[in-house]
Write a protein that binds this DNA or RNA. Sequence first.
DNA 1: AAGCACCCCAACCGCGGATAA
DNA 2: ATTATCCGCGGTTGGGGTGCT
Length: 213
Amino acid sequence: MVTVREETRKGPWTEQEDMQLVCTVRIFGDRRWDFIAQVSGLNRTGKSCRLRWVNYLHPGLKHGHMSPQEERLIIELHARWGKRWSRIARRLPGRTDNEIKNYWRTHMRKKAQERKMNMSPSSSSSSLTYLSCLLDTAPIIGMGSGDNHNGSCVTSTLESTQSVMDGYPMDQIWREIEIPQAPALLGIAEGKDKVCSSIPPSAITCYLGLQMP
DNA sequence: AAGCACCCCAACCGCGGATAA
DNA sequence: ATTATCCGCGGTTGGGGTGCT
C-alpha cells in the first residue's frame, strides 16, 4: 500500500524543518541523504537536505564576513585552482563552497568593475579583468618557498610582481595552507562534535538534547 | 514615503563521477 | 562488465534586504 505523497517541498527551510533535519542527521549520520530525507519526515529531496546541512546546519560552520586572511586565501587558492570551490572551501574551515562561490562572484566582480573604472580608457584591457583584479586585491611576494611546483601560470605572474602584501606575507599563508586544518589561523576548530553558534537555536536545542539523554 | 535599482545569499538544477547491486 | 543509484560539484536563479532618488 502506497500512501499518496505530497509534492516535494522546495524553497526556504523553516525552523521546524531545520530541527527535524538536525535530529535525523544526528541519529543516522550525514550520509545516505535520500534515506535521511525519507525517515526525517521532511518532504524534501535528499539533495535538498544535504545542501541545507552542508551550507547551513553543519556544526562548525561560521557565517558572516570573510576575514582579510580568508579573503587573501581565497584569492590565492582561486589563482591556483580556479573555480574548484569545494577544494578551496576545504582550506577554509567553517566556510562552504557555496559561500566562497557567492563571495567570489559578488566581491570580485565588484573589484573588477572598480578596477576597470580606474583604468584609463586608452590602456588595453583585453587581458586585464581577472588578473588585474587579483593584483589589485592581493599583491603577492615570497612565493618561491618551494611550494610553487604545481602553481598556475597566474601564480607565476603574481610571483613576478614583487609587490608587497600589506602586513600578511604570502609565505605565511602558504605555511598555513600546508597545514590540513588550520584552526589557529581562523580561530575555529573543525569537527562534527563542535556546535557552532551560527546554528539556529532551535536546532541546537535538538542537537544537544539528543546528546544528553 | 514610495518606487526603483542593486546587492547578497540561500536554494535549485543539471551533470559527471563514484559506488553498490 | 553493466546498470542503477547516490553523491558532490559548479553554474544559475529568485527573493529579501538595503540604499538611493
